[in-house]
Design a protein around this nucleic acid. Structure first.
Lengths: 201, 201
DNA sequence: TGTAAAATATTGGCACTGTCAATATACCTA
DNA sequence: TAGGTATATTGACAGTGCCAATATTTTACA
């Protein structure tokens, strides 16, 4: 009982992506090569070209999958805290940064310079992954806990800050953002609190 | 009158770095190769290895230079506005993001996964580049315009947010952060204002 | 000053990479 | 069963980072 018709290999495209994700976690993006992927899949070095036009497309597909995984983590984190906007925002942000640290190579692929026009599907998935954050902000506004400013702008502000923490942390290990003993959770929590309450007097 | 003794080529190390920066701007980081750098410098393909242990070290040196250039831009932007903390923070942030957009490949090298222990000099330069922001926050606190919370934490919060805008903008063009007509300046200004004043009611 | 050592650069080579072209094989349909 | 098509293989090529051996220039020191 096979979903899709099994040609020679069966489901090579998905197999390649799964292996690529493995190799990415093992050796980093720098060491990821189409030929290694093909070898581990047990196919010839040119088999991947039946399913992807070039390496760039493989990376785009990996990035897409990354946004889906990220969305799952974030959603799970949100559902595990009380129905409180502040706490939910903090939980979501912590999940984002933790994902970045646990899958740093994956995040790197997700945010590598990408031609948005070339991979509309990737852009779509990445934005749908942000919708959850938007909803959070929106319901915070409805409950009167957040300002009634432009919801999109507020969402993007939070995203930028959280992503900034993630990007810096992934780039430099140990991250210059936290002073040794502090945990990621605490740092993110502190930053988000600053953002919610403001830095000015 | 030469500062350093001129051996065969003269000042190959700096020449290589300058050419690398050129090529980076022309073709992006993906296409940057030691052999192309050497060729444009008019030396053999192995000459660079006299001055850098490997390609990674070249990229680290490029990153270092990037932080110096960034610091210059930021400093210049600050000096061009009134002696007002808010405006100075906004100007510095705008300069940061504009640098990122104008030298996107360079920024990519500056924030690519880097072993901090391997390149202490790079870490040093990158942090000294942040000192200016720290000073800004500090003087804002002295003037009573900013909260008297931990200065380092506040500085890092601003940095994370600004870098997040930069990283996202560089990764996806056109950036999903601004809705078509808006300018980078306006977006950054809006975000920083949110951060200063808070998102909560 | 002369000579050995050190610093700098070149040549040649190797395994590996992405991608193209040509060929082979399995599957689907008519 | 025949033909077309999707899938996979083989072979090749230019380009890559980096290593080893060699050559050349500069510096250091007797």
């Amino acid at each position: 009982m096979k979903r899709m018709p099994k040609y020679h290999h069966g489901d090579l495209r998905n197999t390649l992506l799964a292996i690529a994700t493995e190799l990415l976690a093992e050796d980093g993006v720098q060491a990821l090569s189409l030929r290694k992927i093909a070898q581990r899949a047990g196919v010839s070095h040119n088999a991947p070209y039946m399913h992807f036009p070039d390496k760039d497309a493989v990376l785009a597909a990996i990035a897409e999958e990354g946004f889906r995984l990220l969305a799952v983590d974030v959603e799970s984190a949100i559902s595990q805290v009380d129905d409180n906007i502040r706490q939910q925002l903090i939980a979501a942000s912590q999940a984002y940064v933790k994902f970045a640290l646990n899958h740093s190579s994956h995040l790197q692929v997700m945010f590598r310079p990408t031609d948005a026009a070339k991979y509309p599907r990737l852009v779509e998935v990445s934005q749908s992954s942000l919708n959850r954050l938007f909803e959070l902000v929106q319901s915070g506004q409805e409950k009167g806990e957040l300002k009634s400013a432009d919801t999109h702008e507020m969402t993007k502000t939070i995203w930028a800050m959280v992503h900034g923490v993630a990007a810096i942390s992934v780039a430099y290990k140990p991250t210059p953002l936290l002073p040794e003993k502090t945990s990621v959770e605490d740092v993110v929590s502190t930053f988000i609190t600053f953002l919610l309450d403001g830095l000015a007097t």
